Amino acid sequence: MQVHTRHTPAFGVARVSLAPGEAVQAVSDTLVANSFGITEARQSRGGLRVHGKGEPSVFTAPKEGGWLDLAPAGPGDVYPLELDGRVGWNVAKQAFLARPSTVRVDAGWRALQVLFGGDGGFLEHYSGTGPLVLACAGPVDALKIEAGALITVRPPHLLAYPDTVQCRLRAVDPSGPQSIRTGEGLAFDFAGPGTVLVQARKSP
Rank of each mutant, 00 (worst) to 15 (best):
Q166A: 08
A160M: 15
W109R: 06
R42P: 02
L143C: 10
K202A: 15
T39S: 13
Q113M: 07
E40R: 05
V24E: 02
V172T: 04
G65E: 10
A200M: 09
G185N: 12
Y161A: 03
D119W: 01
G117D: 06
L186H: 04
Q43E: 15
V198W: 00
L197P: 03
K93F: 07
E55L: 14
A200H: 05
G183L: 13
A95V: 04
T5D: 11
A95F: 05
G176F: 08
V87G: 00
G128F: 02
A95Y: 14
V32Y: 06
P131E: 02
A71L: 15
P156S: 14
V103Q: 10
D173T: 11
A92W: 04
A71P: 01
E22Y: 02
D69N: 11
G54C: 13
A92I: 14
V16A: 04
Q166L: 11
E22G: 07
S57F: 06
V153C: 14
I151K: 06
A19M: 07
W89G: 00
K63Y: 09
T8I: 15
G185R: 12
W67K: 03
P174N: 15
D119Y: 09
A137R: 01
A191D: 11
F116I: 08
V165P: 02
G74N: 14
G46A: 05
R110N: 10
A147K: 12
G21K: 13
V172G: 02
I151R: 04
H4P: 00
